[in-house]
């Protein structure tokens, strides 16, 4: 019953918050309207998502990941602006690199691409379908192996923990 009318409590909460922020009130009437929006919109939008809403298994790992990537965004902002201001453009070593990925969950891949693209200096190009490798463009490449290790350990590992954990535990339960 709960599952049927509230398929994704987090999404409903975000919609309610969005409604309240847009109207800038916490009046009971707007709370009610926002709650209706938060319940109706995910139910109506459910057929649009054949894989169902994502399930987040470890919120603290997710928050830690977002916090670390925020720090990384600010740090690489200053790096990129230093390069733009003080370096000759011919000396900047911009390269495409390949990174083999273990992550398969589509929501995890979406989060990974958002985090990588938000960080200045790296742009996600595409995933090569045959080898499941990520093609990444790096603004100023020093050491290819360092980038591969950083992406795999700092970004991919926590995302696997957040998004792909429940399936493993369910499988363990059934066996």
């Amino acid at each position: 019953m709960m599952k049927r009318w509230l398929p994704s409590p987090l999404l409903s909460l975000c919609l309610l918050l969005m409604w309240l922020l847009l109207n800038q009130t916490i009046e009971p009437a707007h709370l009610l309207l926002g709650a209706v929006l938060g319940i109706v919109a995910p139910v109506l939008a459910r057929p649009l998502q054949p894989q169902g809403y994502p399930r987040i298994s470890r919120p603290f790992v997710l928050f830690r990941l977002l916090w670390l990537s925020l720090i990384e965004i600010v740090r690489s902002c200053f790096n990129v602006s230093r390069i733009i201001l003080f370096r000759r453009t011919e000396g900047v070593n911009s390269q495409f690199i390949h990174i083999p990925l273990d992550l398969r969950d589509p929501y995890g891949l979406a989060l990974l691409s958002c985090l990588i693209n938000s960080t200045p200096g790296t742009v996600w190009v595409e995933i090569v379908p045959e080898t499941h490798e990520l093609l990444l463009h790096v603004f100023d490449l020093h050491d290819e192996q360092w980038w591969i290790d950083t992406i795999k350990s700092h970004y991919e590992q926590p995302i696997i923990e957040v998004f792909e954990q429940p399936r493993h535990s369910e499988r363990e339960k059934t066996t």
């Binding site: 902002c77 200045p120 200096g121």
Partner: peptide, 21 residues
Amino acid sequence: GLLRLGNFYQRIHGPAITVTL
């Protein structure tokens, strides 16, 4: 950076700092 950098693949990194920071 958008104006000054050499080719397109470098230029795409310029506006990223405008958008985030």
